[in-house]
Nucleic acid binder design. Structure first.
Length: 548
RNA sequence: UGGGGUGUGGCCAAGUGGUUAAGGCAGCGGGUUUUGAUCCCGCCAUUCGUAGGUUCGAAUCCUACCACCCCAGCCA
């Protein structure tokens, strides 16, 4: 993992510091608690927290909780867990809801200055009067009320004397602005709903446009980073900051959102997958949510490495899944304990083994001795993977086949002797002879074999469940399909069993594993003492499989 | 067709007037290897959306054109 790649935001900040325009960097990550965080949020988290960290500033975690209709405590808790799991500490926890009083007072300020008015048009009328992309809108009949009348009405809104939808507070900018966001945008709406944080204290709630910039100002945010679709909102963001006596002037900078090949990252669609029962929940290992990736066995470092690799620009981009997977592998390669597991067992009898089982001391990681070792047994009856034996091997096959030899990793070289077929003619057993001179670590024979395969000792192996995951969709751009059901991959989850060496048969919820020659695995959170479940996080790269 | 953006190899992405256009992923070739993994080495854009122009010199400046993305929630 090399040094951090640069990007335009970083460059700009470094520049501002160099020119003395900036003494501290304060960013914020402002999720709305209306769903779980996904890989796109991870990009934003890494950017915001990463920048603050790099320039010795701070990054606030702020819940942008302005709309109680869709927000809940479940999401608030999950978001904190996810950010923290990714490895970031927020200097303090903030809530837009904590600024509701200040925001309200500032709304009064706008009203008194003639910069906002209460509109009693229906939502439909407002829409009709907004105009179109090419035609200007029409002024509301309520647009020229006096400040006094507006204030009285706004207080009635606050005091619950008006019904939902009966009125809205609007900024008084221009109904003919070419930027639609400037055509008298709504600032406050009536919602007789209780809020996870403020309870029933308010029945009017500020919109994102009104709340966001002012919250940034209150917190002293220097760089308010958001995605490109908010670019058209920047003039409004700045208009409000200019009209209000705010203590600070934050600057908004936009970057392009992450698009990941083969995944959807809209909360609405992710929610539809959960609600429709297509996945087991927000943390289903196939979900691109942080919770899903965590459960699948991706490491925080791997995800952060990914976010670093993909960069930050203003261009449309679709990241290939391989970049994510290779980032995860890169981290897991050094982090994981390496062990033996056989997914499709084939019985192997070592016919010339006539002693008790032999204990082998096997390191957890050949390149990281500090991880220690464990004992594996070698004996007369073993299991190997069915795919490691071929009766009629294709050209270039160098595992076990009739007349051939192979090394059982960390054990001995074995030579093919015989094969037992069942009634259907399928291989049910392979008989081999082991070469006593070839014990790993003390091989005196000088023999070289082409293939080395993994195995487990039949009597001491334990059976575990294994869940093999594949992409959730059959198309690279599921986001373009309204009917997600039609592009779901029916084989995105394959349930199976595996025989694992004894050391893998106990509950180890935090450990990362590589099943040698198979892939990276992590125990699923549903595992229990008597039923261990391993999730395949990601496969190993497999040149042989590709060539076939 | 209004406004705002973006165009550098298959996918990302540095580069902001001056040697043969960084790097990563993918791919290809080779070496090491008791994981066909890892690791290591090499190859992989005479060209930067297109066409003109300015300049001794342009991906970088100018002009025109083309393509794509975002905006008409009392969502964020």
């Amino acid at each position: 993992m090399s040094e951090k790649p640069t990007n335009f935001i970083r460059t700009k900040i470094a520049d501002q510091i160099k020119q003395g325009q900036l003494t501290e960097v304060v960013t914020r990550f402002p999720p709305e608690p209306n769903g779980y965080l996904h890989v796109g949020h991870a990009k934003s988290i890494c950017l915001n927290f990463g920048l603050a960290e790099e320039f010795g500033g701070r990054c606030h975690l702020r819940f942008d909780d302005t709309n109680p209709e869709k927000e809940s405590q479940e999401y608030i808790d999950a978001i904190q867990a996810d950010v923290s799991w990714l490895g970031f500490d927020w200097s303090a926890l903030y809530h837009t809801a904590d600024y509701f009083q200040q925001l309200f007072d500032w709304a009064l300020h706008l009203i008194r200055n003639g910069d906002a008015y209460v509109d009693e048009q229906s939502a439909e009328a407002m829409r009709a009067n907004r105009g179109t992309l090419t035609e200007p809108g029409v002024d509301s009949p309520y647009r020229d009320r006096s400040p006094e009348e507006n204030e009285a009405l706004f207080l009635k809104m606050r005091d619950g004397e008006l019904l939902v939808g009966a009125a809205v507070l609007r900024a008084k900018i221009s109904m003919s602005a070419p930027n639609l966001n400037l055509r008298d945008p709504a600032l406050y709406r009536i919602r007789h709903l209780s809020h996870p944080r403020t309870g029933d204290q308010w029945c009017i709630y500020p919109t994102y446009d009104y709340a966001h910039g002012q919250s940034d100002a209150i917190e002293g945010i220097t760089h308010s980073l958001c995605t490109l679709e908010f670019e058209d909102h920047r003039p409004l963001y700045e208009w409000l900051l200019k009209k209000l006596p705010v203590p600070h002037r934050p600057k908004q900078t936009e970057f392009s959102r992450l698009e990941l090949e083969g995944t959807v990252t809209s909360k609405r669609k992710l929610n539809a997958l959960v609600e429709g029962g297509y996945v087991s929940g927000w943390d289903d290992p196939r979900m691109p949510t942080i919770a899903g990736m965590r459960r699948r066995g991706y490491s925080p470092e791997g995800i952060r490495f990914f976010c670093e690799r993909i960069g930050v620009t203003r261009k449309l981009n679709t990241i290939e899944l391989q970049i994510l997977e290779s980032s995860i592998r890169d981290d897991l390669e050094r982090r994981a304990h390496k062990a033996m597991a056989v997914l499709n067992p084939l019985k192997v009898v070592v016919t010339n083994w006539d002693q008790v089982s032999l204990g082998l001391d096997v390191p957890w990681h050949p390149k990281r001795p500090e991880l220690g070792s464990r004992t594996m047994l070698f004996g007369r009856e073993l299991s190997i993977d069915r795919s490691d034996f071929e009766l009629n091997p294709p050209e270039g096959f160098f595992r076990l086949s009739p007349g051939g030899s192979v090394r059982l990793k960390y054990g001995f070289i074995v030579d093919f002797e015989d094969v037992v077929l069942d009634a259907q003619g399928l291989v049910s057993e392979v008989h081999v002879r082991y070469d006593p001179e070839t014990r790993s670590g003390r091989d005196q024979s000088g023999r070289k074999v082409k293939g080395t395969i993994h195995w487990v000792h039949a009597a001491s192996a334990r059976e575990v469940d294994v869940r093999l995951y594949d992409r959730l969709f059959t198309v690279p751009d599921p986001g373009n399909y309204e009917d997600l059901a039609s592009v779901m991959n029916s084989e995105s989850l394959i349930n199976g069993q595996a025989l694992v060496e004894p050391a893998l048969g106990t509950l180890m919820p935090d450990a990362y594993f590589q099943f040698e020659r198979v892939g990276f695995f992590k125990q699923d959170s549903e595992s229990s003492d008597d039923r261990i479940i391993y999730n395949r996080s990601v496969t190993l790269k497999h040149a042989w499989a590709k060539k076939k």
